[in-house]
Structures are given as structure tokens and as C-alpha cells.
Amino acid sequence: MSAAGTAAGSAAGAAGAVRVRPPRGRFTSALRLLLSSPRTLFALVVVVGVVLLALLDEQVAPTGYNEVDVAQRLLAPGADHWFGTDDLGRDVLSRVVLGAAVSLQVGAVAVGFSLVCGVTAGLLAGYYGRWLDTVLMRLMDVLFAFPAMLLAIAVIAVLGPGTTNAMIAIGLTYTPVFARVTRAAVLGVKESVYVRASRSVGASDARLLLRHVLPNAAPPIIVQTSVSLAFAVLAEAALSFVGLGTQPPAPSWGRMLSEGRGHLEDAWWMAVFPGLAIVLLVLAFNLLGDGLRDVLDPQQRSALEAARSRSRRARRRGGRS
């Protein structure tokens, strides 16, 4: 059995290549693994594509988001308007493209909010334990006891409708999830040898938390972030759909759906395209989360590597014969 890691690709490796891994950084190899799955690759392409759309917005959209042209209202999809026009004569494609920015922005800010609050709470609760743990986690239990959508609606009922408040509401909803994931991970690494060792040489708590505990708790948090982005995009669409999120005339996919709902008989495209956009982005975040989980979870990871080495072996065999 060749134990050397340098034999990758050499013909001699064929007989003895048990586990040939180039000596690269953890990050690069994780990234390569991530990209080796077609599903994850698809997800990444979609996410990157949507982010690009959102960044470029007005440069790629055929028209502005609010160019009303009543003469052109309710046109079916065609050469001039690929996705048709809505009841005010606005180009649906343009509004879908411009809506990407709204969705991503709300999603990113909301998840960032839950990430910061949740991870902080989870770190403190997990690391310090005792009463702080009890208080923080009961607080999270209370938040968690509200059905997500309802909590968001209740928060908006108080704060008032609007994009910013939607972000806060959605962010608050997912805070307990991050807190729980983080706390569990922290409990897992807190008693590990290296944390105990660092503590014994007198590292400060803050340093320990940031340098040792957090990085090791990171994998589940990263996975959760991707999955939460999917939820956040869905939640923003839902809130806007019932009129509590993004306010007109800003283009929001959820908002567009609720406008399209009134024209199901005469303009199906008004409801179909924004919906497809939501599905695509949410699907991409979900698949990305799955892919990240596969790569960051060691058990899954070895299974993946095994599958890859099989395909590599098959290719080599095919080449020889």
C-alpha cells in the first residue's frame, strides 16, 4: 500500500492507491470536494448567477422596474417581453431580475442578524453554562415556540410593514436555530483536548472562544446559514405576498405573486415567473446546504471521497484498455 500522498495520478498509484490526497489546505480540498458534486455545482452556479444579477441589476434588466406603459399591459411572453408584461404594462422579466436584489438583500441581512445574535448566544450559553446557559436557552425556547411565520407577522404587526422590519422579523425567527446549533457544537469541542490544553496555559476566554471554539463549531453553523438563507428568501416572499414585507412599487417576488394572483385567468405569466425565480433560488440554497453538509461532515465526506475514487479508477481503467 502506498502511503505517500505524492503519487496522485501516477500509473503506479493504480495498484496501491488507497487514499491519495494531495497535501493541500483543508479549505482547498473541501472546496474541490464541494465542486465535485453536480448538484452542488448547480447550486453554486445559480447562487452566483443570482448574486451577479442583483449586483448588475439595472444594467441587465431590459427596462426599469417601474416603467409603467399602460398601452403594453398584460402582454403574453414574446420577443419584446420574454416574460410578458403585468397589469401596469411593466416588463415582468425586468422586475424578476430586479427582485433578485431585494430577495438576496433581505435574506442576507436577516440571516446575518440571526447569525450574529444566535451564534453569540450559543457561544456564551455553551461555553459558560450554568445560569447563563439556562437563561439564554429558555429565551431561545420562547422564541422557538412561535411558529416562524406567525412570529414574523406579529413582529411586523408591531414594527409596521416594510423591508427593514421584514428583515428584523425574519432574523429574529431563526435566531434560536443558530443558538442551538452553536451551543451543541461548543459543548462538543469545549472539553476537547486542545481547548483544555489552551485553557491550562492561560489563554483568555475571548481568545479561546474566537480562536479555538468557534472555528471548530463552524461547520454546522455554515451549513445552517445556507439552509436559513433558503428559509429567509421564502419568508420574505411570503411576507411580501400578504403585504407585510417589501412595499410597492419596489419589485419583490412575493409582491409580484400577489399581484399575479388577481390575473390568473388572463395573465398566468405574472404569477408563474416570479414563483419560478423563488423556487430556483431557494432550491439552490437548499442544495448548497446539503452539499456543504456532505463535505463538512467527516462521515459523509469519506463516502464522497470513496465515490470519487471509484469514478477516477473507472476512468483510468477505461483509458488503459
Partner: peptide, 22 residues
């Protein structure tokens, strides 16, 4: 099932209405 968990319920509802009711 992967697509199923990614579809907004209200959009699914609208599509079903479009097809089965409309």
C-alpha cells in the same frame, strides 16, 4: 422532495388553482 421543500406554499397553491380550478 428537494424541489418540494423549496417551493413557496402559496405559489404552489396558485399553480394548483391555475391548473385544477382554472
Amino acid at each position: 422532495s428537494q424541489v418540494g421543500i423549496s417551493v413557496p406554499e402559496f405559489w404552489m397553491g396558485i399553480m394548483l388553482i391555475l391548473l385544477f380550478a382554472g
